[in-house]
């Protein structure tokens, strides 16, 4: 009986996982979300920026990380547009331009933000640290034109923005190692404030930078998205997702407990 349980066909586990996702999608949960300190710190920082400040959002992720990072990007963009904080979007990840462009336009339309005045999307440039360092001298030397091919000199909001000196915060939404590159090449060298929203896979790596304040805040995956949505008072995909994730997390927890219980019983019998 025990060995049967432990040698369960993995497809049965797959079905259990599928059910644990399908059922809450059909019957959504609505559990209370507690905001963690690292997310609160990003919100507070942006919230205290005066109108007319500028933040740069680096969309350093591709379609495989969209479910986690798009809700974060949406929530932060909404917050910025509400606060009249100007946004410069850009990416160092080749698979990001289309998704970032679509997302910014969508939120801008919802909030009535104007391209070139309230936000600009610069697009993608290859060469991680080289692009970052070049923007430290002049953003236009790395991005002479924005994603729509408009020269930066013709974009009203870029008239008084030359380099990082005029940018109050860089928010890196990352699925890879770009946050560490931003910290290494931009944070110390240009005394630039950096925050990050990252996928679950790399959350743990970010904590040393949070303690040294090389990162002023951190949004961890789906959880971070749901926390930020709670802070701006617009629960959406992040909140929905983290609620729906609860049963799968519990299922995996239970599976591990069962697996270990069987393992200990078998080991005792063998002894």
């Amino acid at each position: 009986m025990l060995s049967k349980l432990i040698n369960l066909d993995r497809r049965i586990i797959f079905i259990l996982v599928a059910l644990a996702v399908i059922i809450p999608t059909l019957l959504p949960l609505n559990l209370p979300i507690n905001v963690s300190n690292p997310t609160q710190r990003i919100y507070d920082y942006i919230d205290t920026l005066p109108a007319g400040s500028t933040i740069m959002i680096a969309f350093d992720y591709g379609p495989s990380s969209m479910p986690e990072l798009n809700p974060m990007a949406k929530a932060v963009l909404r917050h910025c547009f509400d606060k009249k904080v100007r946004v410069i979007g850009m990416t160092l990840y080749p698979f990001a331009p289309t998704l970032a462009d679509t997302l910014i336009k969508e939120v801008a339309e919802e909030k009535g933000a104007v391209n070139g005045e309230d936000y600009v999307f610069l697009g993608f440039r290859p060469g991680y640290e080289q692009v970052m360092l070049r923007m430290g001298t002049s953003i236009a030397s790395a991005f002479e034109k924005d994603y729509t091919n408009t020269p930066l000199t013709e974009i009203p909001m870029m008239k008084d923005i030359t380099n990082y000196d005029q940018i109050d915060l860089i928010l890196d939404l990352a699925s890879g190692s770009t946050t560490q590159i931003w910290i290494t090449y931009v944070n110390v060298k240009y005394s630039q404030q950096i925050a990050a929203g990252v996928t679950g896979v790399i959350v743990s790596n970010m904590y040393p930078y949070l303690q040294t304040k090389q990162l002023i805040g951190l949004m961890p995956g789906y959880l971070g998205a749901s926390e930020y949505e709670k802070l701006i008072g617009v629960p959406e995909k992040g909140t929905e997702g983290i609620n729906n994730a609860s049963p799968v997390h519990v299922l995996i927890f239970v599976l591990v407990v069962i697996g270990n219980t069987v393992f200990f019983i078998q080991r005792r019998r063998e002894e």
Binding site: V17, I22, T25, E68, G200, V201, N205, G241, H249
Partner: peptide
């Protein structure tokens, strides 16, 4: 890191099922 990775992968699955 494992705990956080599960969150990340489950997020993708939830989005696809959604």
């Amino acid at each position: 890191a494992f705990g956080n990775t599960v969150m990340g992968r489950v997020a993708l699955l939830i989005q696809r099922v959604d």
